[in-house]
């Protein structure tokens, strides 16, 4: 029988322009979790005992040794890392979306300036501090943005990941080019 080799979305080299780096993130298991109506507290308890994390509120994320969980819209979140326990599946709709998502990490001092060219979000640290998540648009593509140390993670549907990488690379090039221009009022 033919053995098929699994291929990650977005294989390829890390991109570097100026102080900016764009790299792919290996996510492992990605599970979409949406509590059934009235089961939010039960789900939080099930998550707590299985993965030591509660269900995140709007725009929040949680992290533990088991993995992390990112709020990804009204009454839904993405569980990254662990397999969901039977107790979780009892009180929430649970779908394995491992192959549906691709993620990349944009780091560097001007990462927010790059994304500001592409998304309408307010990315200042005072409004979007580390650990916050947001669903929004990047260009015309729906994405999930997560603020991390010194940058952002961009989660995108796998089918649109090359488009998003291209959009970000274009914005990285022009942001890095502008930073090379000496300021007029030196």
């Amino acid at each position: 029988m033919t053995v098929l080799t699994p291929q990650r979305a977005l294989d390829g080299q890390e991109l570097r322009h100026g102080n900016l780096q764009l790299s792919t993130v290996a996510l492992g298991r990605v599970t979409w979790v949406a509590p059934y109506p009235g089961e939010e507290t039960a789900l939080s308890h099930a998550l707590q005992s299985a993965c030591s994390m509660s269900f995140p509120g709007p725009g929040e994320s949680r992290e533990s040794t088991a993995g992390r969980i990112l709020w990804s819209g009204r009454a839904q979140a993405l569980l990254i890392g662990p397999h969901p326990s039977a107790a979780i599946e009892k009180c929430a709709a649970v779908v394995d979306q491992t192959d549906g998502w691709a993620a990349m990490r944009l780091g560097g001092a001007s990462a927010a300036q790059v994304l500001a060219r592409l998304t309408p979000l307010d990315l200042r640290p005072s409004h979007f501090p580390r650990g916050r998540t947001a669903r929004s648009l990047l260009g015309h593509v729906p994405v999930l943005l997560v603020a991390i140390e010194n940058g952002f993670e961009i989660f995108v549907m796998r089918s649109m990941s090359e488009t998003v990488r291209h959009e970000i690379e274009t914005a990285m090039r022009s942001t890095a080019a502008r930073e090379k221009i000496p300021t007029a009022h030196a």
Binding site: P58, G59, R74, P120, D122, H127, L137
Partner: peptide, 11 residues
């Protein structure tokens, strides 16, 4: 109410 003030193009 969930996301805060957001741009028109998301709606």
């Amino acid at each position: 109410p969930l996301c805060g003030a957001r741009d028109l193009r998301e709606f």
